[in-house]
Design a protein around this nucleic acid. Structure first.
Lengths: 185, 185
DNA sequence: CGCGCCATGTAATCCGTTACATGATTGA
DNA sequence: TCAATCATGTAACGGATTACATGGCGCG
């Protein structure tokens, strides 16, 4: 399930411009499937070249003209076919975890600061997701609400984890400071 | 914190070959920071070019010769400096979540199958992580054990999530089948 | 007056994985 | 005999972000 497929999935529900597609994707699936203009616009061009979408130019005054893309029958078929293919495994990369992993080589105060910042990030993510949940409550499918709940659950789980390790890091920091003082005394 | 920095971090503890580096990284940080030979070997070449590591060729018989890389003072300094830089945000991409998101366009049975497969994947990840935890218990730092616990926690959280949504999906599937039957009746 | 929204697109760049190439040894 | 482990490296390819380019309108 690559970006083009995902875009077809969104266009299957409603015709949109590339700009709107980016905005909608960012709010709904952004936390597990990111996309930038630099990938969306070329993808739209390719999809149109393949006959999977069709565009209509809309002239506007006061704001830039736009191109509304709607899915074709061939596009719907392509989307259905790709749903049958097995999803690739998740990809996950976290530099924060890497910093934690090398915690013993870190300045202790700085590590705690990173933990705090991350907790704030989680809290912000939860607020965003709550907002999204409200925004889409009426129009989203139950499946779409499930993905939101997943995001909320993992953010909450991470806050628990951070709450759990913070005192441990604090204790380790005291130890290492104590150890250093002993050594230098 | 890019791959080169991470590699320096590992080499700061012990000199190793590229092959061993890959193996060790895969077992310890693999679930939040992947790396393949195609990225490790060129990185090693670059690091040596910059004077951050130094290699010693070791001739072996019965098996291929190898190059053991050890970190230099300059390499240690570079690693320390990059610890001071703020970590980039996590990157996460999940095609499974995307499939769930488009659940209403999915064959209901197939979606449940994907959920099952994923639960199996989580269970397998937990077993792997438990094995890694035992393997490294004696030699890992407390920080390193924390990252393992994080992996375990998120895998467990995801199983809970899957357990939660499975009956919901089953109910939705019944509804949609019922609806279809009514419509076709 | 400056920023952010609307709106499209391209180009430079940087990542990374996968496949290919080689080849002996060891264990099932 | 077949697969896996050990061991290094390159080349092809794919996918994505970022920055650049353009430009009117509305709000504080």
């Amino acid at each position: 399930m690559n970006l083009k497929t995902v875009m077809l999935g969104f266009l299957a529900r409603e015709a949109m411009t590339g700009y709107e597609l980016k905005h909608l994707m960012g709010r709904s699936v952004g936390f597990f499937f990111g996309a930038s203009y630099g990938s969306i616009y070329p993808a739209l061009r390719d999809l149109e070249g393949g006959g999977f979408v069709r565009s209509t130019a809309v002239v506007q005054d006061g704001r830039p003209n736009k191109k509304v893309y709607e899915i074709t029958d061939s596009g719907r078929e392509r989307f259905r076919a790709s749903l049958a293919e097995p999803p690739a495994g998740d990809s996950f990369r976290s530099e924060f975890m890497m910093h934690l992993f090398f915690g013993h080589l870190h300045d202790p105060g700085r590590l705690l600061e990173l933990v705090h910042r991350r907790r704030e990030g989680c809290r912000a993510a939860i607020e965003t997701l709550n907002g999204v949940e409200e925004e889409f409550r009426e129009i989203a499918t139950p499946y779409q609400m499930m993905t939101l709940r997943s995001g909320l659950a993992s953010a909450r789980a991470e806050i628990s984890f951070l709450d759990e390790i913070e005192p441990e890091i604090r204790a380790l920091a005291r130890e290492s400071v104590g150890g250093t003082e002993e050594a230098s005394a």
